[in-house]
Each structure stands twice: as structure tokens, then as C-alpha cells.
Amino acid sequence: MNNPAVTNLVLSLGAMQVARRLPLEDPDFITYLRIGYVASQLISLAIYWFITLKIRRRNDLTVLKYVNPPSAMNPDAKPELVTTTVKDYDLVETGKAMRGLFMGIAMMAFLHGYLKYTQPLFIQGIMTLKGVLESNPAKLHLWGKKAEGDLARPFKTAGGFLEGITGKAQGPQTDAASIKAAEKAGAGGKSE
């Protein structure tokens, strides 16, 4: 059971079953649930902050070149050549993950604060920590795994709906031919 999608499904289904048995009408319990949710978010932010410190301390200035494919929403756009360093790439990816964490907090504030749902506090408190600990930056900088396979930079993106319809992979291209073609075409070139 090494597939994150399967473990997410199993964990969320299990957490929902547990949440059904919790006394969600008890105001004292809801207070503890809120404290637990806030604590899990703070722990998640602390983990990302620690990963950011490790990335900066490691200071890997190895050059990384890849070609971002054009957006599926804008078929007229050209592929974009990106030249960056491993350090900068990892910092950007960790920043994206942190923004995702803040979006989740905003969504939970709406669900719990405005719509008064309490069950998602329990489930998201667990799922957020799991997501942080299984993120690519955490695998590389917290767990010390090698940057190869699925962890090779640039990270592969999960297949989306449009990719399934068109059959085209939307992830960044790292092969020498794509990079050379983008350099010759003057494909914008973005340096980070």
C-alpha cells in the first residue's frame, strides 16, 4: 500500500467512520477539535519551514533546465524554457505547497466558521499532516530519499482530466531535444 492515492482513500474513509462516532454536538469536544486542527496546521507549517531551512542550508546550485508545456486552456501558447537551480526549484515547490496549505485553511474557515460543519475539522487535521509528510519536498529533505524516479526534478505532475481526454502528458519535459528546440525557438525562457 505504497500508493498515496490508495492510502488517502483508506485513511479518509477510516477517519470518516471515526468522526461519525465522535460527540460533535458537545461544545467542549468541538473546542478540543478546533485546537487539534489548529495544532495540525501549525505543525504542518513548521515542517515546511524546517524543509525551507534545510534547502537553504544545502544550497544546491546545480543548474536545472526543463520545458514547461503550453497550457491546455491556451493551445496557442508556446512551450516555455525554464532555467533555474535545484535550490530555487525546491524553494518554489515548497512555497506552492505552503500556499496550498493556506488555501485549505481558508476553505476550512468557510466550512466550519460559516457553514458550521465540524466533521471536516477532524478529517482535514489528519489528512493535512499526512499530505505534508508525503510531499516531494519532505521526501527529499526530511526523509533523505534520492532525487530519482518520481522524485527527479522537475517533479512529475499528476495526470488531470484534460490529459486523460487528449492523451498528451502535461508534465515538464527534460529531454535534451525538447530543451534544445525551446532554446532555438526562443520559447520565452524564464530564469528563476
Rank of each mutant, 00 (worst) to 15 (best):
F155T: 07
L162W: 09
G149K: 01
G149W: 10
P120S: 07
I126K: 00
T128L: 14
P137Q: 07
H141N: 13
G149R: 03
F161C: 11
L151M: 05
G149D: 04
R153L: 13
G159P: 10
L129S: 09
G159H: 08
G131E: 11
F161Q: 11
F161D: 13
T128E: 14
H141R: 12
Q119C: 04
P154I: 09
P137N: 06
I123P: 05
L151T: 09
G131S: 09
L162I: 11
G125F: 01
A152K: 03
E148D: 15
P137G: 05
M127V: 04
A158K: 09
I123Y: 05
L129P: 07
D150K: 04
G160Q: 00
V132R: 01
G159V: 14
L129V: 11
T118V: 13
K146N: 09
E134R: 09
F161H: 13
I126F: 12
L162Q: 08
T118K: 10
L142E: 09
A158Q: 10
T118E: 12
S135N: 09
F122S: 09
V132K: 01
F161G: 08
L140H: 00
L121R: 05
G159R: 12
T128P: 07
G149C: 03
P120K: 05
E148W: 02
L142T: 05
F161M: 12
D150H: 08
Q119Y: 12
S135C: 11
L140F: 00
Q124M: 14
L133C: 13
T118W: 14
G131W: 05
G131Y: 03
K145Y: 10
A138D: 13
W143Q: 11
G160R: 00
G131H: 03
G160A: 05
G125L: 04
I126E: 15
I123W: 06
P154A: 01
T128C: 14
M127T: 03
M127Y: 06
R153A: 08
W143G: 09
L151E: 11
P120V: 02
L121C: 07
K130I: 08
A158R: 11
L121G: 06
E134V: 12
Q124L: 14
K145V: 02
H141W: 07
E134K: 06
F161N: 11
E148R: 00
G159W: 10
K156E: 14
G149Q: 04
I123D: 14
K139Y: 05
L129E: 08
A158C: 10
G144L: 05
G144S: 14
L142Y: 03
L151F: 00
E134W: 12
L129T: 06
S135D: 12
P154Y: 00
T157P: 02
F122R: 00
V132I: 15
E148H: 03
G144F: 03
L140C: 00
R153P: 07
F155Y: 03
A158E: 13
L162K: 04
S135K: 04
L133Y: 08
K130E: 15
K145H: 15
G149H: 06
G149F: 05
G131I: 09
E134N: 15
L162F: 10
A147V: 03
A147Q: 04
G125P: 06
S135G: 07
P137C: 08
G159A: 11
W143R: 03
D150T: 08
K145C: 11
H141D: 14
L142A: 14
I123R: 02
L162G: 09
L140V: 03
K139W: 03
A147N: 02
T118R: 11
P137H: 01
L151D: 13
T118S: 13
I126S: 06
K139E: 15
